[in-house]
């Protein structure tokens, strides 16, 4: 039994850190809602002025940025997610020559940071005339996402009781049928968590967009925001509104799926 004071201490500390996490976020939302005609200060609240969002949207061209981000993110998540399920299935549940070595190649892809590849990637994609297209944003991120996704799905498939796969084989199911109809329904939490993570990382990617894209029409939301900031350092409310616009889609996805997402992260096993 823990003492009452200890209980209080626990809640106090949890509350404190929650507050600390929330305060800047609430602050920027308040700032985005301020009356633009007043003297603006971060975090103060003087009523709700939704017009800021409209102004930021129009002046900042955020509609176009969000569209680019959506195209890139959805493509990356769908393609990388599907390919990860396929390769994770093979690595997790099939025995074939060289699977160990091949898996290390995937692990390598997981370890190499974008920063180490960005320079050659730029020149390679430029040679293929792919810079300043969505492909320059999509393809490299599919690659990094697939490395992670394969690792993630393999771990899931390895946790599936082998007898389930064997029962399906005796029942006459093909490996393809077993994957989509027997195993994938079980994989929902793992797939969901993977989706949220890939969505988050892809939406928030900055360096790649900064390097690959000069055409304003292709700018993703984080890149657009950084340019918007360059132009509007003095206008606090507009910048705050723009920030909120850029952050919102991921926060919404997170809020919708957070219960499954956190559960997926929590039941994550740590393998030595």
């Amino acid at each position: 039994m823990t003492s009452r004071t200890e209980q209080t201490l626990t809640y106090t500390i949890l509350g404190l850190f929650s507050l600390l996490a929330l305060a800047p976020i609430v602050g920027i939302v308040f700032t985005a809602l301020q009356n633009p005609d007043n003297v603006n200060a971060f975090g103060s609240f003087d009523g709700i002025h939704l017009g800021n969002f409209k102004d930021a949207w129009e002046q900042g061209n955020f509609g176009s940025y969000l569209k680019s981000s959506a195209i890139v993110t959805v493509t990356v998540v769908v393609v990388a997610g599907t390919l990860s399920i396929l390769s994770g299935y093979a690595f997790g549940l099939m025995r074939f020559r060289g699977s160990g070595v091949l898996f290390y190649v995937f692990l390598l892809g997981l370890m190499v940071p974008m920063e180490a590849m960005i320079v050659p990637l730029y020149y390679d994609l430029r040679d293929l005339s792919l810079t300043d297209t969505y492909w320059a944003l999509i393809l490299p991120q599919i690659a990094t996402s697939v490395a992670f996704g394969t690792f993630w799905m393999r771990a899931f498939f390895r946790s599936v009781p082998r007898s389930l796969v064997e029962a399906a084989r005796i029942d006459g199911a093909t490996s393809w049928f077993t994957l989509w109809r027997v195993l994938l329904p079980l994989a929902k939490p793992a797939v969901l968590t993977m989706t949220v993570l890939l969505f988050m990382w892809t939406w928030n990617e900055f360096l790649l967009a900064l390097v690959m894209v000069t055409d304003e029409g292709l700018r993703t939301a984080p890149l657009g925001l950084s340019f918007f900031q360059g132009r509007n350092t003095s206008n606090l409310t507009l910048l705050a509104a723009g920030s909120v616009i850029v952050a919102t889609p991921v926060v919404v996805v997170y809020m919708f799926l957070q219960r499954h997402f956190i559960r997926g992260m929590l039941s994550g096993a740590v393998k030595g």
């Binding site: 009781p161 007898s163 389930l164 029962a167 399906a168 005796i170 029942d171 079980l186």
Partner: peptide, 26 residues
């Protein structure tokens, strides 16, 4: 052949009917 596994290996997302019918459908 048909096999009964130690851990039963029932398909968790399918109803009992679908579990029984699975092999026949295949």
């Amino acid at each position: 052949i048909a096999m009964v596994f130690q851990d039963y290996a029932l398909y968790p997302q399918m109803t009992v009917f679908d579990n029984l019918a699975f092999g026949l459908r295949r």
